[in-house]
Design a protein around this nucleic acid. Structure first.
Ligand SMILES: [Zn+2]
Ligand SMILES: [Zn+2]
Ligand SMILES: [Zn+2]
Ligand SMILES: [Zn+2]
Lengths: 158, 158
DNA sequence: GTCTATATGAGAATGAATATCACTTTCGAT
DNA sequence: ATCGAAAGTGATATTCATTCTCATATAGAC
């Protein structure tokens, strides 16, 4: 599961580098994020988990912290529309270059790695004059588990 | 600008095919959508424009209409998080296979066409068992106009 | 330690989107 | 054409994620 302490220490250094104050609340949020890499928790998830570690923290502080961390690149925010956003710590290894598979059956979010967009970005910048600073690639569909469940449900009925 | 009447007629046929009732309100929304291809209007934009054509329509009806049309594939919804969603009519030609360049300076949304994801989807389905039904590819950055404005601002100051 | 900009907690406010409900309309069957 | 059930509508209340407000507390530079 990666080294939680190391990830937190790394993030704290980045905070100082970016003139963000290191508070107990922010450290608690970072620990939660580091312990949940790959889980893509919501702000509410993070709030509840942080509560166990730092009782009394306010939900607004969690939002403010996530926002501050996102602005300096320590976390990524995955906006999912109506159902709210999800957050993830940008780990040192492979942090930024993965995309998401979003299951519309169960809501689970998995990842896959792929470059492939780099040279496409160059092409777009050259042909349109649009300067790209970020991108988002998502695939929606049904995860293996949901497909299995649907299959089971159908066969058991016929 | 394409043929507005033809697009509306095509959409109305699709509505009937999908057991959606054709009402004056929905026709008015469709006309607005057909007249604004490429503009990526918000629900509020569509509401205001539809008002001119069908005074008294309710905002909720616009939302319900857009939702119904999206469910049967007549319109696409582009979820932009905090700033609300944008909608567009899926035209017959090239309707579905374009992606978006979203300017974080002025908010304008432009498009670019590209296949490229088809064979990647196959690869993902084979390697993960995830069945893909839809995808979303977006690039964020600064459009040519905003880059020009920023450049002008800088040089005029130094 | 002092000081100032910044962060925090509690709860109010925001705003896009949805739900509710009484009433109206569509459209296939008669 | 007309009838009736199912679906759609307008006005408005409600939801819910996120942001704002403001009084208080604290981090971090000196
Ligand atoms: Zn699933
Ligand atoms: Zn991820
Ligand atoms: Zn722009
Ligand atoms: Zn578009």
């Amino acid at each position: 599961m990666g080294d939680v302490k190391r990830e937190v220490a790394r993030a704290i250094n980045l905070m100082s580098d970016n003139d963000l104050r290191v508070t107990p609340e922010r450290e608690a949020v970072l620990e939660v994020l580091a312990e949940n890499i790959g889980a893509h928790p919501s702000a509410e998830d993070i709030y509840l988990a942080t509560m166990e570690r730092h009782p009394g923290i306010g939900l607004a502080t969690v939002y403010r912290t996530l926002d501050a961390l996102e602005r300096v690149g320590i976390v990524s925010k995955l906006e999912l529309g109506a159902s709210g956003s999800r957050y993830e710590l940008n780990t040192d290894v492979g942090g930024h270059f993965h995309h998401h598979l979003i299951c519309i059956g169960c809501g689970r979010i998995t990842e896959f790695n792929q470059d492939l967009l780099e040279h496409l970005e160059k092409e777009i910048e050259d042909s349109t004059g649009f300067q790209i600073t970020d991108h988002s690639l998502r695939f929606y569909g049904y995860c293996a588990k949901c497909r299995e469940a649907a299959k089971g449900g159908e066969t058991s009925r016929s």
